[in-house]
Design a protein around this nucleic acid. Sequence first.
DNA 1: TGATAATGGTTCATATTTTGAACCGTCATT
DNA 2: AATGACGGTTCAAAATATGAACCATTATCA
Lengths: 288, 288
Amino acid sequence: MLINFCQTFFEITQDKFLQMSSASKALTLLTHFSTARPEIGLSQLCRIAGRDKATTYRHLQALESVGFIEQNPATKHYRLGPALMHFAQIREATVPRKEAAKSALSALADVTGETAHATVLSGTTLYGLCACESPHHGTRAVIDINIFPLHATASGHCALAFGPADLFDAAVSSLTGFTSATPTKPDELTALIETTRETGFARADQSYEAEIQGFAAPIFDHTGLLAGAVAVASVASRFTLSLEHTIKSELIIAAREISRNWGGAIPAGIEAAWAKSVKIPNELESTS
Amino acid sequence: MLINFCQTFFEITQDKFLQMSSASKALTLLTHFSTARPEIGLSQLCRIAGRDKATTYRHLQALESVGFIEQNPATKHYRLGPALMHFAQIREATVPRKEAAKSALSALADVTGETAHATVLSGTTLYGLCACESPHHGTRAVIDINIFPLHATASGHCALAFGPADLFDAAVSSLTGFTSATPTKPDELTALIETTRETGFARADQSYEAEIQGFAAPIFDHTGLLAGAVAVASVASRFTLSLEHTIKSELIIAAREISRNWGGAIPAGIEAAWAKSVKIPNELESTS
DNA sequence: TGATAATGGTTCATATTTTGAACCGTCATT
DNA sequence: AATGACGGTTCAAAATATGAACCATTATCA
C-alpha cells in the first residue's frame, strides 16, 4: 500500500515529506526495492524517489550503518541489508499469523454483526484458520468446517480467482453438490470465478449451506501470492443491500490488515476492482 | 542519586549518538526488541535506550508510520511491525543467504550430533541468522536467535579475529560477564583473539552459557571481507577430543560451502591455519 | 477511599540537524 | 579531447529535532 501510494501520487510526495520525520523519509527509500528491482544505484534511486542526491546518499548511509541497506561492492548499487532478516525473525516470533488474524476477524464480526472467518491455502486445500462469531444476533452462521470446498464456498472462489492456476483442476475434479445452488458444472464455476476477479469479492449464495450468504476477499502474505481468504457468512433471511455494502467495506479493511500483518499487501489490481465495486473511499487509516 | 545516575548515563549515551543521523538514532530503537523482550512500553524503552521520552516517542511514531513498529492496542506497548516481514522477503530473494546456509548447517548438525548455527556481521553487531538442531541427543544446545556478544561467543571471536579492526573497540566497550569464564578484561580477550587467528577456529569454553562449548569458523562473502561465522554449540559434559576433531573438520567444510554460496571464499591464510590445526586434509571438493 | 507515582502522550522555544545547489574526481562513450 | 553519467562531498540557509515541563489516565498502595 505504501509502495503504491508513493509511486502513484508522486507529485504529492514532495509536499508529504514536509511533515515527515527524517527517519520516515529515510525509511521510505526502502519501499523502492522489490524482487523485480532488487538493486538500485544512487542516481537511479534519486530519480525514482524524486529527491536530492546528497539527501538520498546520506539516507542510504544511515540505513547502511544499521544494516538495512548494503552496497554491492562490484556495482556500487544498493540493496536491502541483512538486519532485515534478523528483525523479521523476531517479528514472526512476536506476532504469529493466527494471532494476527484474530483481531481483524473480531472487528469484522463486530461491525457486520455476522460470523467472520479466515482460511489458509496450503497446496490445493483451503483450511479454516479461525472463526469469530458476533453475539449481535440470536441466529448466526456457525463455521465448523475444517476444509473449505473450492467450488462451493466464497473463500474457495477467492482462491480460484487469485491463487495458483492449478487449483481449478483440483476444484473441477470434485464438484460435489451440497445444495441446489452449488455449481456442479465447470462452466458455472468459471463464470463465478470471473465475477470474483472483476469485483475483487467472492459471493456464495447458499451454494454450500442453505440460508447462508457468504462473502470473501483474498489475503496475501510476504511471498506476494495468495495466502488465503477472509470471509463473512451471513444468514440469508436477514440479508439486505445495506448489509452487503457494510460487509464489502469491512472485508476490504480486514483483508488489508491481515495481509499487512502477514507481511504482504493487496495487489493493485484487486484494490482497483474494490474501488470500482464499492463506492466509498477506503483510505481511512493511511498516514494517520 | 537516581537523577545523577540518569544524567551521567545519559551523557555517555548521548556521546554515542552525536555523530549519528536522526534516522540511525530512530532505527537503533529496533535493536532493543528481541524474542525475549518482544514488547516494550514507551517509558521502559526510554530507560533502555537512555533517551528522552518525547524524542523516543517521535521516533516510534516515525517507525510506526512505515510499519517497522506497531503498537499493541491492548497494552499500548510497542513491538516490531509487519513491514519487516515484507522487506525480509525481498532481501532473501535478493541475497538468499539463509537458504544457502541451511543445507550446510543441516549437514553440520547431522554429522556432529550437535546444534549448528550461523551468524551475520552487520556493522559492529553480530546477528544470529539461523540455527539447526540435531535430533541425535536428548540434551542439546538451543540457540535463541539474537545478538551475539562479540567478547563471549565463539562466533564473536571469529568476527574480532578476522573482521574489521574497529570491532575490538566495540567489544571492549561492553565486556559483560555472563559466566565465571567470560573474558571481562581486554587482555584476556586479546589472547583469545590471538589463538583464534593462529588456529582459524574460535573456541568459547562456557564463556557465554555454562555447560556449552562453542566452536566457530569464519565465513566470507563476495566482498572478500568477513561476513559472519558458522558455529557448533555442544554440551560440555559430553565433549571429547574426538568430537572436537569432528567439529573442526565439519566446520571447515561448512565454512567453505557457505562462503562459496555467499559469493566468497576462505582466504589462504585461514586455510593454512586450518591445515595446521586439523591434521586430516580437507581439500575434498576444491577445484572440481 | 484518597494520595501517590507511573504510564502514554503533548507543547513550545531553542538550537541542532538536515537540506540541496553547486562542486569534484572518475569512468565509459563518442 | 569533449561529453555526460556516475558516486560522492561541501557549506550557508532553513527546516527539523530536541527536552524540560506539562496534561490526562491508569495502576499502586497506605
